[in-house]
């Protein structure tokens, strides 16, 4: 396949993915905006005003980066897992599998689709947050880099979930029982410095903790983790998950009998 043909295939796949989540915007873009909006009102405005400061910032300011990151993580993941699994379920994934599109283009197309939805919801949530707090981005490059890398990691994770899923229960188990607890315990609502030493160490095993804190560093200039270390972890996750996805596609796991 020529390079220009590969680009057309990639572009087609990305447009298809964006068209899919845009078509069902009431299911994909509105609910996360409402949920995160409620977090802003309840935790930020109502309860936050009684909490006072966290790491030297108003509580509202402190939770905004974490909530944006939460929206990006959940939506990047759920876009890929639901899109890929739906195509498996309807067997329309066969359109791609019989075509000459290389595996890395298939994977990259789904990743970009997941990133597009994650970042679209992230942008909506960020806009909403401006009604509750002033955001003065301290490190724009760090902010952009960490949000892009995080959406890649969770798009890849969603892809793996979809490959192994056999029914619609299988695509909700990981987000419910793994992803949500890791996000909530990843320092979205609190600083890890509030925890006893043992739980600070346990928090260090949670990759989302690094992502949330690096994003908070980008926006507020304050973090509970070493930012360089956080980028290394993110990079490592991308390499491992990307390699695993390519291996699974090459072997046809969950796709070819």
């Amino acid at each position: 396949m020529f390079r220009s043909h590969k680009f057309i295939a990639f572009e087609t796949l990305v447009i298809k993915e964006i068209r899919r989540f845009s078509r069902i915007w009431l299911q994909t873009l509105v609910p996360p905006a409402i949920t995160i909006g409620l977090y802003f009102v309840i935790f930020g405005n109502l309860i936050g005003s009684r909490i006072g400061e966290m790491n030297g910032f108003q509580y509202m300011e402190f939770i905004v980066p974490g909530l944006i990151m939460m929206a990006v993580i959940q939506n990047s993941y759920s876009n890929v897992v639901s899109s890929f699994f739906s195509q498996k379920f309807q067997r329309s994934i066969e359109e791609l599998l019989v075509s000459p599109v290389p595996n890395y283009i298939i994977l990259t197309g789904f990743i970009v689709g997941g990133m597009a939805r994650g970042l679209a919801v992230g942008a909506i949530v960020t806009t909403m947050s401006l009604f509750f707090a002033d955001l003065n981005v301290q490190h724009p490059l760090v902010t952009i880099a960490v949000i892009l890398m995080t959406s890649i990691v969770f798009s890849l994770a969603g892809f793996i979930n979809a490959i192994f899923a056999n029914n619609f229960d299988d695509i909700s188990i990981i987000p419910t029982f793994v992803l949500t607890p890791l996000i909530y315990l990843g320092g979205v609502f609190y600083s890890v410095q509030l925890l006893p030493p043992l739980w600070q160490i346990v928090s260090g095993l949670n990759p989302i903790f690094y992502m949330v804190n690096t994003f908070r560093y980008g926006i507020l200039g304050s973090s509970d983790v070493d930012v360089v270390w956080a980028f290394l972890i993110l990079g490592l996750f991308i390499v491992i998950l990307y390699g695993a996805c390519i291996w699974l596609l090459r072997h046809g796991t969950g796709l070819r009998a």
Binding site: S4, K6, I8, E11, T12, S92, E95
Partner: peptide, 22 residues
Amino acid sequence: EVNFSQFERVRDIVMTQAGYYG
């Protein structure tokens, strides 16, 4: 068996396949 997305438009299904072939 039918193996295209039931939610897409007829033209989009054919155009998407054309795109996959470059």
